[in-house]
Amino acid sequence: MNPSALIADDEPLLAEYLKAQLANLWPELQIVAIARNGLEAIAALHEHEPDIAFLDIGMPGLSGLEVARSAHGCHCVFITAFDQYAVEAFDRDAIDYLLKPYSEERLQRAISKLQDKLASQQPANNGALLESLRLALGGIGPRNTPQRLSWIRAGQGNEVKLIAINDVCYFHSADKYTTVVTREGEYLIRTPLKELLEQLDAEQFWQVHRATLVNVRDIAEARRDFTGRVTLTLKSRPEPLVVSRAYVHLFKQI
């Protein structure tokens, strides 16, 4: 009998992308349901009793971690936007994780691990990883722990693109949209700068203007003119960025 799986992710495009990848890499795997939130995931677990569940940690309502507590006898693979250094602390033999945006090679490794477990008829043991996750987060449950972005979904025309946070040169807010600027181009998101600040690494992204967040790693030069105004030159973009007076103190050593 072919193994079965549930996919739970509140991002429909990512759920369909994972489904397509699994169809290519593991054609024998039967996807019995795609859930859009934690409550739908639990209902699907009870209805279909899948062998495997791919669970997004950051779903609304109930997180993937909370859903996993109800996934008795089911091998859970977490899908998460945590930074690599944090996710590595969660890796255990009994369960796996996929860090967004994950590569096909990384998914293949997860599939191989799951196939080995199913072949050896090892029972699922989600509790060990759940506790590891809790401890790695300083003992705080997932609902109270802000998750740092490691990727962002942005639009360009009629297309939607997944952009690694490290590839972002800067964010610029205007009207109802925020522009995500990379070396390759510009993309639009609806997330305001205030929300982005709460999810970005404060050591990597600095606010240099009420409408601009810059990736510090992409700053090539900060120059101050005779009026005291600071202008930034980037490594990956030709346009300069002006630092407003409220944030000039960040560059006081120049």
Rank of each mutant, 00 (worst) to 15 (best):
residue 1 M to V: 14
residue 4 S to D: 03
residue 5 A to R: 07
residue 5 A to E: 03
residue 8 A to R: 02
residue 8 A to C: 07
residue 8 A to D: 04
residue 13 L to I: 13
residue 20 A to K: 15
residue 21 Q to C: 13
residue 27 P to Y: 06
residue 31 I to E: 03
residue 31 I to C: 08
residue 32 V to Q: 05
residue 32 V to M: 11
residue 33 A to M: 08
residue 34 I to Q: 12
residue 41 A to D: 03
residue 43 A to E: 14
residue 45 L to I: 07
residue 47 E to A: 14
residue 48 H to D: 04
residue 50 P to I: 00
residue 53 A to D: 05
residue 53 A to S: 03
residue 54 F to R: 05
residue 54 F to N: 06
residue 60 P to W: 08
residue 60 P to Q: 07
residue 61 G to S: 07
residue 62 L to A: 08
residue 66 E to T: 06
residue 66 E to H: 03
residue 75 H to C: 00
residue 79 I to L: 12
residue 79 I to T: 02
residue 82 F to H: 14
residue 84 Q to N: 09
residue 88 E to S: 06
residue 89 A to E: 14
residue 92 R to K: 00
residue 98 L to V: 03
residue 102 Y to P: 03
residue 103 S to R: 07
residue 104 E to G: 09
residue 104 E to R: 14
residue 107 L to Q: 01
residue 109 R to H: 08
residue 111 I to G: 00
residue 112 S to H: 11
residue 114 L to C: 00
residue 124 A to W: 08
residue 125 N to W: 09
residue 128 A to H: 10
residue 130 L to W: 10
residue 131 E to Q: 11
residue 133 L to R: 10
residue 133 L to K: 08
residue 137 L to D: 09
residue 139 G to E: 03
residue 141 G to D: 15
residue 141 G to C: 14
residue 145 T to S: 13
residue 145 T to W: 13
residue 149 L to C: 03
residue 149 L to S: 04
residue 150 S to R: 04
residue 153 R to V: 01
residue 154 A to L: 01
residue 156 Q to V: 01
residue 159 E to C: 00
residue 164 A to E: 08
residue 168 V to I: 13
residue 174 A to L: 11
residue 175 D to Q: 09
residue 175 D to E: 13
residue 175 D to V: 00
residue 178 T to D: 06
residue 180 V to N: 01
residue 180 V to A: 02
residue 180 V to F: 03
residue 181 V to H: 04
residue 181 V to R: 08
residue 182 T to F: 11
residue 183 R to Y: 12
residue 184 E to C: 07
residue 188 L to W: 04
residue 191 T to H: 05
residue 194 K to R: 13
residue 195 E to L: 13
residue 197 L to Q: 15
residue 197 L to T: 12
residue 200 L to Y: 01
residue 200 L to C: 02
residue 201 D to E: 09
residue 207 Q to N: 07
residue 211 A to V: 02
residue 213 L to S: 08
residue 214 V to Y: 07
residue 217 R to C: 06
residue 220 A to V: 09
residue 220 A to D: 10
residue 221 E to I: 08
residue 223 R to P: 00
residue 224 R to C: 07
residue 231 T to Q: 15
residue 231 T to E: 15
residue 231 T to P: 06
residue 239 E to P: 11
residue 244 S to W: 11
residue 245 R to Y: 13
residue 247 Y to N: 11
residue 247 Y to V: 09
residue 251 F to Y: 14
residue 251 F to C: 10
residue 252 K to I: 15
